[in-house]
Design a binder for these strands. Structure first.
Lengths: 335, 335
DNA sequence: ACAGTTGTTGAAATCGTTTACAATTATATC
DNA sequence: GATATAATTGTAAACGATTTCAACAACTGT
């Protein structure tokens, strides 16, 4: 058991200088084969692993990217996290994952931690509140890519989903099927996604010239319990002929409420949701749903970020890119 | 925009030495109030953030712990990840999360990355394959805590769940309810959890003196599709009067299969599962399930690890601790 | 007035790498 | 065989913090 095993010890054992060991470690071309073999042998025998902390300090690069998302426990964000990690690995980067919990304070504190740790770039699903600090980070050379949500007035790459249009499409389809009293369980209106999906609901009604009756829209918080609760409230409305829920967690709760009330889908009530979780296609009939390209969302963001990092284009040289991915409406038997 | 902003610049602006700035940064007691104010002001004005890379190098501590789990996408492991992160934050540590994907090669490569990055400790849900390298890490002073699974012959702290006993309890309950042909969808038999839950199934039958008929046990892979497929196979058996599934993902698939076949729970068939996902209590009747203390599993492991880190007891000084948490059987209407 | 504290500071070594540069040796060219 | 060129190595200076040590100032009690 070696108390300390550093490049110097390796150099000593191999009878060369630290510079040469370093060259071997980094696959420099001009090292004599014999020397390289000797060094590699020592490395193998001693289980030496380079100290990345020292390396990062000297190189002023950590080859790591920070990811701040609201919550790994959500299926949506965990897929994004996975996508980013996969993309990072593909590019020989490592990731540091942070659960921002949709709290601006936590977000800020994580941004600082990531800055302290000199990550080479950051992927963020922003709360929308820390524009100044984000601006500062970008101007000091740490590229940031926003994902799923945006911060107005911030000059950086962004990857979004066309929430509004996709949501409009669902509702238009339902209206054209003849539904006239479509209940909607909306998400929190301080989040872009919440706002846009609700907008789409109104857009479709307006386009089709169908009025939205009083009490058809209820506000939820994107969590499972609120989905069940709001659904129960809506189902008391005798005129209700369909239910559209703005994310999958709330839809889980709503689905249960419908079943418990003994209603049949689609005979008694139409049902559709934003998001396409596993169970949507497993139940009978399948639930019509909007499938977001979640994985692509994450990997696109990561690729964008990595490109900016390796280009050294740091932050402001190149124009920010804004990519909007298409969510797809998948028709199943529920509506 | 400062091209480089380091402690030296801050010292210069504040008219003091780097040592003093460092002392302010680290809340040393003996700095004159006036000096401290001056330094803090400069720090605020310039948005200076300490370079943690340099700090870590000098301190030979990173205040970070690595977490290698099979997959953030699984509800089980994402909860563990969250628990570990929460515990880490509570102790002012940061975490590096890695998706080992149950592959020994990926696990090894992540272990090396974490070692390179000099994390202060590692939490691992092991594949069981890299004992030598794990041993080496421990002996070189990096404490490791195993979670959910174990590696035989490895001297380190471990936090497990009593899979076997909990599984036995479920099956005993079902047998005492009078079920005599309980189908079981098992998990992969190269994983400790898969093995133990199956053992529990056999244990209960043996204890109660009930024979396990041919074809009642099917092997799955813990994923949703295999749950549906194995369930369909089992449901062809006319004698089958109950179904017990060894994790929640497979149970999701199995539940769908039962519903699609038009069977009623519990009138036509009893149903129970290991794991207690949200939907188990939301459907009617609720599904009897084994709730694992997942969050506690993660936070216990993290606390154990942090304690070993800050005690400086590194690795082998103190005896390894083995903690077995109790999973609880929750009776609902499905059985 | 003096020694002994206590509080407050700065100079310089250190952590473990990478890398610019110089130095040396081997090979090719004429 | 002299010279130019290329291959191979080593020396030492970074990177940006922390921390040891010594120095100095301001008190304290005698």
């Amino acid at each position: 058991m070696h108390r300390k095993l550093n490049i110097e010890k390796v150099a000593e054992y191999a009878g060369v200088s630290t510079a040469t060991v370093s060259r071997v470690l980094n696959n420099y071309p001009f090292v004599k084969d014999e020397t390289r073999r000797k060094v590699l042998q020592v490395i193998r025998e001693t289980n030496y692993q380079v100290n990345a902390v020292a390396r990062n300090l000297r190189r002023k690069k950590t080859h790591s990217i920070g990811v701040i998302i609201s919550n790994v426990l959500s299926s949506f964000y965990s897929v994004i996290a996975k996508a980013v990690e996969d993309a990072a690995i593909r590019n020989k980067f490592s990731t540091v994952l942070c659960n921002g919990g949709d709290s601006p304070e936590k977000e800020l504190s994580y941004l600082k931690v990531l800055h302290e740790n000199r990550v080479d770039g950051i992927i963020l699903s922003p709360t929308g509140k820390n524009r100044d600090y984000l601006s500062f980070l970008i101007s000091s050379g740490i590229p940031i890519t926003l994902v799923d949500r945006t911060v107005k007035g911030l000059q950086c790459d962004t990857v979004l989903v066309n929430n509004r249009e996709a949501s409009r499409e669902v509702v238009r389809y339902m209206l054209r099927q003849g539904y006239r009293n479509i209940g909607f369980i909306a998400g929190p209106q301080d989040r872009l996604t919440g706002i846009e999906r609700l907008q789409g609901y109104y857009d479709a009604h307006e386009n089709e010239g169908v009025p939205v009756h009083e009490g058809l829209v209820k506000m939820g918080d994107f969590l499972i319990e609120s989905g069940k609760a709001r659904a129960i409230e809506l189902l008391e409305n005798g005129r209700l002929d369909a239910l559209y829920v703005s994310n999958s967690d709330m839809a889980t709760g709503a689905y249960v409420a419908i079943k418990e009330k003994g209603l049949r889908i689609p005979e008694d009530i139409g049902f559709a949701m934003f998001d396409d979780p596993d169970w949507a296609s497993l139940v009978t009939p399948g639930v019509s749903a909007v499938r977001q390209p979640v994985y692509t969302l994450g990997s696109t963001a990561a690729d964008l970020l990595v490109k900016r990092i390796v280009d050294g284009s740091g932050a402001i040289d190149k124009e920010p890119v804004k990519i909007v991915l298409e969510a797809r409406f998948i028709k199943r038997g529920s509506v």
